[in-house]
């Protein structure tokens, strides 16, 4: 049973579609980068996966169970606004979240909090810095001993040290328990090094989905004369052209024709190519 499967899922807010007709599957044990520009639909997608946002069309299922209206017991979710009780101390919060769960490990929470620098257990959650609150929220998410961890912008308000600490905690979780992780970010560089699977969304639609190595291997960047593109075969994703030179991003490209230089793209140029393409479609 796959940790997460989306079937033609869509969400409309009033007249605007935040997510539209998205289908994908996330295999077990992957660390998935959910990337896309701000407003691409990442949070809505994660919210629907967590069961707190109701899809307008289609649906998502976690470990084979539809997620609408209820968070799957094996799924933990970190929302973008971190949703913690600010009037409780960290210790009380741990107790509170624990008492709302059937399966819960206070030891795991303490273990995670112990790895973080300077979390005072008797401090009110509201007095902690935004970064520390994020880390506390991640600790709570791990206390549920999840098999799928959904993290919405987990690194957005962290300084470099806290970012490293946090990634270490998440990666240790993957190493120890084989947890599947889906992390969103509007900054690819945040996730580049730690993810092995990419889900690129823009305009509410999935643009790229797959293992990073495989996705890169499927694409080519060709640089050649602007005058003659007829010899190039493959699905054109996007192109930048000057008077003399064309740079093309191709999917499933045929062998590089004469007069062109072909290389495998790196992840950044691949993502940029797709985002540029979806921008142009919108115009």
């Amino acid at each position: 049973m796959n940790p997460l499967t989306a079937t033609a899922v869509g969400k409309r807010y009033r007249s605007r579609w935040a997510v539209r007709d998205c289908s994908f599957t996330i295999p077990e044990g992957k660390v998935v980068a959910l990337v896309g520009p701000n407003g691409a639909g990442k949070s809505t997608l994660l919210g629907m996966a967590a069961g707190i946002v109701r899809p307008t069309t289609g649906g998502l299922s976690a470990f084979g169970t539809p997620t609408a209206g209820r968070t799957h017991p094996d799924v933990s979710y970190l929302g973008q606004n971190r949703s913690l009780y600010h009037d409780l101390t960290v210790r009380e919060l741990t107790r509170a979240v624990g008492s709302m769960n059937d399966r819960w490990s206070t030891d795991r929470v303490h273990e995670v909090l112990g790895l973080l620098t300077g979390v005072d257990h008797d401090a009110k959650v509201g007095t902690l810095s935004a970064g520390t609150r994020t880390q506390v929220a991640i600790a709570m998410a791990l206390g549920r001993l999840p098999r799928l961890l959904l993290l919405d912008e987990p690194l957005s308000d962290l300084d470099p040290l806290a970012r490293d600490e946090t990634l270490r905690i998440i990666m240790t979780e993957v190493a120890d328990r084989g947890t599947t992780v889906v992390m969103s970010s509007h900054l690819l560089t945040d996730l580049r090094e730690v993810c092995d699977h990419i889900l690129l969304v823009d305009e509410g639609r999935v643009q790229v989905d797959g293992d990073i190595e495989e996705v890169l291997a499927r694409h080519r960047i060709l640089v050649g004369p602007a005058a003659d593109e007829s010899s190039v075969e493959g699905t054109l994703v996007s192109a930048t052209r000057t008077a003399r030179q064309s740079t093309l991003l191709l999917r499933e490209a045929a062998p590089t024709p004469k007069g062109w230089e072909g290389t495998e793209p790196d992840l950044e140029s691949l993502v940029m190519g797709y985002l540029r393409a979806s921008r142009e479609r919108r115009r």
Binding site: G51, I52, P73, V75, G79, N81, S83, V97, M100, R144
Partner: peptide, 17 residues
């Protein structure tokens, strides 16, 4: 304040909450 999300994403049912 959005704190309902914390309870809604734990195993306690919304009705019991």
């Amino acid at each position: 304040q959005g704190t309902h999300v914390l309870a809604f994403t734990q195993s306690v049912s919304r009705t019991r909450w």
